[in-house]
């Protein structure tokens, strides 16, 4: 009897690439496997540059695209076996996404609270009278309140507020797992840490596990418990976040770490490192 919240085994996603007659396939995600323990909520970071398959992996975990090979199990139920509206809603209730750019995730012509109400009614099955209370509760968990958000359009909120609203929306149905795909890369650097710290609070106080997808090693170091580093769809290094980032072993992990811009370089004259060690495109196109 396993007690895994999420379990991935040999997960592969291949896409056909180029060639009308001689079809070649390339693996966007290649034999990825890891497991999250249900009894111990954690922040699990997936790190890699663009094109490394992070987002494809996230979409498979969210059951938005099917796997080409391998299985993903959520609470011991393979995602491929989820059929029908009821089962799908039940899955969505427990696994919720947070997207990269809050300005794109929300329709600019619709009021933000509409998304909260819709989630509350559809996923949390809250009655008409309770909707306000449930939304307000979720917003309070992220440091906002319904009074601040009600009736506002996305452009009336700051990027940080909007991303918090997106997180509150994801919390309404009381999920066990959040999949956050680059949640801070579009947010101002000065607000980034407040969002990242919020994830930490969600893990500690609400017991939510979070799959945190990012290319920002500094924030990943700050909050995550375990990480995997992906290159061209493959996991090249995994383990305890601090151990891996303090002392990366794989050449690609070392490259990623060396590419992190350190604020300490302000003191040195030679600001950016020697370019010869950094190939422009480490992936093959």
């Amino acid at each position: 009897m396993t007690s895994d919240l999420l379990n991935l085994e040999g997960v592969t996603k291949s896409y056909a690439s180029s060639g009308l007659l001689a079809r070649k396939t390339f693996n966007a995600v290649d034999e990825v496997g890891f497991a999250l323990d249900a009894s111990r909520p954690e922040i699990f970071a997936i790190i890699g540059e663009s094109g490394s398959g992070k987002t494809t992996l996230a979409r498979m975990i969210l059951n938005m695209v099917p796997t080409s090979a391998g299985t993903i199990r959520f609470r011991d139920k393979a995602l491929a076996t989820i059929r029908g509206r009821r089962a799908r809603l039940d899955f969505m209730r427990q696994v919720q996404p947070i997207f990269q750019n809050p300005y794109e995730a929300f329709n600019p012509l619709k009021r933000v609270d509409r998304y909260l109400y819709a989630t509350a009614r559809r996923l949390a099955r809250v009655g008409r009278t309770e909707v306000d209370r449930v939304c307000d509760e979720a917003l309070r968990k992220v440091g906002l309140s319904l009074a601040e958000v009600r009736g506002r359009f996305p452009h009336e909120l700051s990027g940080g507020q909007l991303q918090r609203t997106a997180i509150a929306r994801a919390l309404i149905s009381g999920p066990a797992l959040l999949v956050a795909d680059e949640p801070v890369s579009m947010v101002d650097a000065s607000l980034r840490m407040s969002i990242v710290d919020l994830f930490k609070a969600l893990r500690d106080e609400l017991g939510v596990s979070i799959v945190y997808i990012t290319h920002d090693l500094a924030t990943a170091y700050h909050i995550s418990d375990r990480i995997i580093i992906m290159q061209k769809g493959r996991v090249v290094e995994s383990g305890d976040a601090r151990a891996v980032l303090d002392n990366p072993q794989h050449p690609y992990s070392k490259l990623l770490k060396s590419a992190v811009l350190s604020p300490d370089n302000a003191e040195t004259d030679e600001k950016v490192a020697d370019p010869s060690v950094l190939p422009f495109d480490t992936r093959t196109v």
């Binding site: 700051s158 940080g160 507020q161 650097a189 000065s190 607000l191 980034r192 840490m193 407040s194 990242v196 710290d197 090693l217 500094a218 924030t219 170091y221 700050h222 601090r242 980032l245 303090d246 770490k257 992190v260 350190s262 604020p263 300490d264």
Partner: peptide, 20 residues
């Protein structure tokens, strides 16, 4: 702005600025 920068090797809590 400077104090809120995350760094690898530094786990101290970062304080966010209140308000907008």
């Amino acid at each position: 702005l400077i104090a809120s920068l995350p760094r690898i090797g530094d786990l101290s809590a970062k304080r966010a600025l209140t308000g907008a």
